[in-house]
Amino acid sequence: MTELVNKSMKVSIADDIRISPSRPVLRIKFTNACFYLAVVLGFVLLGAINYQSNSAYLIVALVISTAVMSIIHAWKNIRALGVIAGQAFPAFAGEPLRANATITAGGFPTVALVCDIPDIAEDDGVTIAHLGALQSQLVTLVLPGKQRGLHHLRRLRVASLYPMGLVFVQAEFIIDWQFIVYPAPLISGNLASDAGDGQGEGQRLGSTGDFHGHHLYQPGESQRRVDWRAVARGRPILVKEFVSGPLQDCWIDYDRFPGVPLEQRLSLMCGQIISFEHTGQRYGLRLPGILIEPNHGETHYHTCLKQLALWTSPQPLGNP
C-alpha cells in the first residue's frame, strides 16, 4: 500500500515538472487570515475544554470543516482554467506595455479571479468577477514600460482568494509574450533638414505643413497631433495629418547623427519614422548593414521601428 502510494505520488510530481502550455502549475498557500482563524479557534477550544462545553466543540468542528470545504472550493475554482496567450503589443520605451490573454473556464463557472504577471511586482492585475462554464474572457494586462529592445514574459498567473480568503490559490501558466519596445521617440527641431540633407529633396514636416485630413487615433501614436479641440466637441479622438508639397522618398540614416549617443540617435530616428508615417511620406531606413527601401504604411512603419528596437551597435561606440 505504501509503495503504491509513493509510486503514484512520484508520477504526479513528475507530471507537474513537465510543464506544457495547456497545464498550469497550481499552488496553494495559506494566508495570514488562516493563521488568525487558527488562533481564534484555539482560544475557543481552550474555553470549550475549560467549560466542558460540547456546543463550543461543535462550533469549532463546524468552522474547521467549513474552512476545509472552502479550501477544496478554492482549489476547484482554479484548477480547470485555461489560458491562451494573445497579442503582446509593441510600445515605445517608457510607455505602458499591453498584452492580451484569453482566460477559459472549465466545465463549471469560476469566480473572483485576478490575472497578473508574477515577475512584475507593481502590477495590479485584472479582475474577472465571474466566468461561466466553458466561457472565456479576453483580458488586457497593462504593464509598466521597459527599455528599448526585445522582452520576454513567460509567466501568467491567475489567482484567487475565493471563497473565504483562507487560502491563496494560484495557477501559473507558461506563456511566451514577446514585447518589442521601440526607442522613445525624439522629435528634433531641424528634423526636416536632417532627413533631407544630402539628397536635396528634404521635406518640411510636422504640424507646420498643410492640413491634409484626420485619421482615428491608434494606440501608440504620439498625442501631440491629436485634435483636442475636436475631442472637446465630443468627436472621437482624431489625429491631424499634415502634408506639405508632393510626397517624395526620404532616408532616415543612422550615420546622419554623428557624435550623438546610440540611444538618443535611435530615438531621433524613431521620431523621424513617426513623423514621416503621419505625413504619409515614403521613407527608407539605413542602418549599418541594414537597408530598408522607402515605402510607407502600417507594416513598413513597424518593420522600421522593429529594426530600431532590436538594433545593437556592431562595434562599441568610440569617439567618432
Binding site: 475549560n50 466542558q52 461543535l58 469549532v60 468542528a61 470543516s65 467549513t66 470545504m69 472552502s70
Partner: peptide, 23 residues
C-alpha cells in the same frame, strides 16, 4: 460550504479528544 462540511464536522466533533482541565 457548511452542509458539505457537515460530515467532517460530525467526525471531528465525535473524535476530538475531550480533555479534562479547569483554569
Amino acid at each position: 460550504l457548511m452542509l458539505k462540511g457537515l460530515p467532517l464536522a460530525i467526525i471531528i466533533f465525535m473524535l476530538f479528544p475531550r480533555l479534562q482541565m479547569n483554569f
